[in-house]
């Protein structure tokens, strides 16, 4: 188990900056997600930490010591790829024992560790099976067991769940988090799935266009996105332009009292669960444009003047499309972005 620090890492491929001067650190035993859309440089970051890709500039520290010139096989960062990459010519036992065999561990010793690992991932009795005989979830477990068997300093997971179907993905996510917590192993998870990042990590690093836009706990990045693009990436859809003058917010929807915000022009983000709908009268400003019933909740798009607001309501409030509704927005709950925080 180690702490990891990246300092001013930059990497270009064919004059195309994939990673632009990023720095972050991961504590001992912490589970950190690197979240970003595909092509934002997150897999490259993992490969740099593992030692498969050499950065153009910058430093990497494990427990404070530089590992920049340590070769892959000695660095101890084990990468689990998206497509598991089990060795097709080896059976489960040989796959899990592979790293130990390379390290020169004796056969009896290997057998013991393999048995231990199989127990950990609940696949006892699968020693003789070949990868082609395993289901997706089982392959994933073997891949984990194989990575864990070498007692890695840091576990690097590259979109480990995206090849699994939805239900299996949830099970495997819980399973992985549980093992990670049990072993207290430093883990970096790379994903483009915001829910996966929110649910499984202690901290989230949001990476856009090779730059770190925000880093914080799941609640921080969800409730207080640092800029407009991070907010949009987390699926926030309601953005309203407004001007604040002496405690009054003026928007195209009307004027609202506001506290603790200095004067200026803003884009205000309202989370869809923050907008409350009430049964309206003839004079109500809102009209339900679309609605999607999703069981425990219903999604609405409500038109207020020129704005289309996305809202979520619990199941006890059901409005028909075309119905007039009163829209209650508490702008004090909104996130105010100044122009310089749009980060386009």
């Amino acid at each position: 188990m180690v702490s990891i620090e990246l300092k001013n890492i930059t990497k270009s491929f064919n004059n195309n900056k994939v990673i632009d001067n990023i720095s972050f650190s991961v504590e001992k035993g912490e589970m950190v997600s690197i979240l970003g859309p595909s092509g934002c440089g997150k897999t490259t970051t993992l490969k740099i930490i593992a030692g498969l890709v050499k950065p153009d500039s910058g430093e990497i520290f494990f427990n404070g010591g530089s590992v920049l010139h340590t070769p892959v096989e000695k660095r101890g960062g084990v990468l689990v790829f998206q497509d598991f990459l089990l060795f097709p010519h080896l059976n489960v036992e040989e796959n899990i024992g592979f790293g130990l065999k390379m390290a020169g561990v004796k056969k009896n010793e290997r057998k013991k560790v393999v048995a231990e690992m199989l127990k950990l991932v609940q696949l006892e009795g699968y020693e003789e099976k070949y990868p082609r005989e395993l289901s997706g979830g089982q392959k994933q477990r073997v891949a984990f067991a194989r990575a864990l068997a070498v007692k890695p300093k840091v576990l690097l997971l590259d979109e480990p769940f995206s090849n699994l179907d939805t239900r299996l993905r949830e099970t495997m996510r819980e399973f992985t988090c549980e093992i990670q917590r049990k072993l207290g192993i430093t883990t970096i998870l790379v994903t483009h799935d915001k829910e996966e990042a929110l649910m499984s990590s202690d901290r989230i690093i949001v990476l856009l266009d090779g730059k770190i836009k925000q880093s914080g706990t799941p609640t921080e990045v969800y409730f207080k996105p640092a800029c407009l693009r991070v907010a949009k990436f987390f699926g926030h859809k309601n953005f309203i332009e407004g001007i604040v003058r002496n405690g009054v917010l003026s928007t195209a929807m009307g004027n609202y009292p506001i506290q603790g915000i200095e004067n200026g022009d803003y884009q205000i983000m309202i989370r869809h669960e923050e907008i409350k709908l009430k049964k309206g009268t003839e004079n109500s400003a809102g009209i339900v444009e679309r609605s999607w019933f999703a069981g425990e909740r219903t999604y609405y798009i409500v038109k207020v003047k020129d704005f289309s607001l996305h809202c979520i309501e619990k199941q006890n409030k059901i409005f028909a499309e075309g119905e007039k509704v009163d829209v209650v927005i508490d702008f004090n709950e909104g996130v105010f972005f100044k122009k310089e925080n749009y980060c386009r």
Partner: peptide
């Protein structure tokens, strides 16, 4: 190429 990288990552020179 990745399968060989996987071996490298697991400690094979």
């Amino acid at each position: 190429e990745k399968i060989e990288l996987q071996a490298r990552v697991l400690g094979a020179n």
